[in-house]
């Protein structure tokens, strides 16, 4: 099993698509920072426009914490989309190149093989989120400095710089669980569909639907609380003025449960299906 995991890591490190994923993440980061640099002051002005009649403002809200928050919001769509495309490719490329047949001719257990794929996918996801977080914090604080964070969530919430840092770090940690879920789903889709293009399309549709369903009210408390799409926003809860920790823990644990179920489905399908 460990040798399979090592082999998977070696394959990923040698594949150009890994570099593409990293490049895509950094490009998104660059775009957000550039737009914030040129338009940030206008955005803040627009947000505080209604308060200008009554208040004078002292201090700078266009700071590193706001930039990190803006980049963090790429966890809604951009980052999971990139992850789903890359991770599904871990398996679809094996089908396409027929390397999976070569592997299966070796004394390799199918369960160990697919399980190692899932484990490496999760590690890869965590690594990408870690690189995104570290580079975001470093670049944002370096260029824009420290300061209070303002977020519009149930009103205007202002957080002191050290509090904002704590919330942003935890949001990245919580967001990584959401990213793991999408990664596991994409690998399971790859198991089911085998073909790269079909998997990308279905994965993108899944992500779009998941985002749409998140905002949909099902008029049923149980569905609204337990349905998978309602669990993918736990990282945003760190920006409510009072952090609802129990809700965050509940959502993350349930989403991990969903991830395990999806993984088991993928493993069962892979085990039962002939490679040919």
């Amino acid at each position: 099993m460990i040798s399979l995991i090592r082999s998977e890591i070696y394959k990923i490190s040698k594949q150009s698509k890994t570099l593409y994923a990293l490049a895509a993440i950094l490009i998104i980061e660059g775009f957000v920072i550039m737009s914030a640099y040129y338009q940030g002051a206008g955005i803040i002005d627009l947000l505080l426009d209604n308060l200008k009649d009554s208040f004078e403002f002292r201090g700078n809200l266009l700071n590193g914490n706001l930039i990190i928050y803006l980049i963090l919001n790429s966890l809604w769509f951009h980052v999971p989309l990139i992850l789903m495309i890359i991770i599904s490719g871990f398996l679809t490329s094996e089908y396409k190149d027929k390397t999976i047949e070569t592997v299966m001719l070796q004394p390799v257990n199918k369960l160990d093989f697919i399980l190692s794929k899932y484990i490496v996918s999760i590690v890869f996801t965590l690594l990408i989120v870690l690189i995104l977080a570290v580079s975001t914090f470093f670049i944002s604080y370096w260029i824009f400095g420290y300061g209070d964070l303002v977020v519009y969530l149930d009103g205007l919430n202002f957080f002191k710089s050290d509090d904002a840092f704590y919330r942003l770090i935890n949001a990245f940690l919580s967001g990584s669980i959401t990213m793991i879920f999408f990664s596991v789903v994409s690998l399971t889709l790859a198991v089911i569909l085998k073909d790269a293009t079909k998997t990308w399309i279905v994965a993108a549709i899944f992500l779009i639907c998941s985002n749409l369903l998140l905002k949909m009210d099902f008029n049923n408390d149980i569905v609204n609380e337990l349905f998978f799409s309602k669990l993918t926003d736990s990282w945003q809860y760190f920006f409510y003025y009072e952090i609802p920790y129990s809700t965050i823990y509940f959502k993350n644990l349930l989403l991990l449960g969903y991830s395990i179920v999806v993984m088991i489905i993928g493993i069962l399908i892979f085990k039962r299906r002939d490679i040919q």
Partner: peptide, 17 residues
């Protein structure tokens, strides 16, 4: 004490709501 208008334009990327 003063009168103040509510926020009218929440920005797309400044929150989930």
């Amino acid at each position: 004490e003063f009168a103040v208008n509510s926020i009218k334009i929440p920005l797309r990327f400044l929150g989930k709501e």
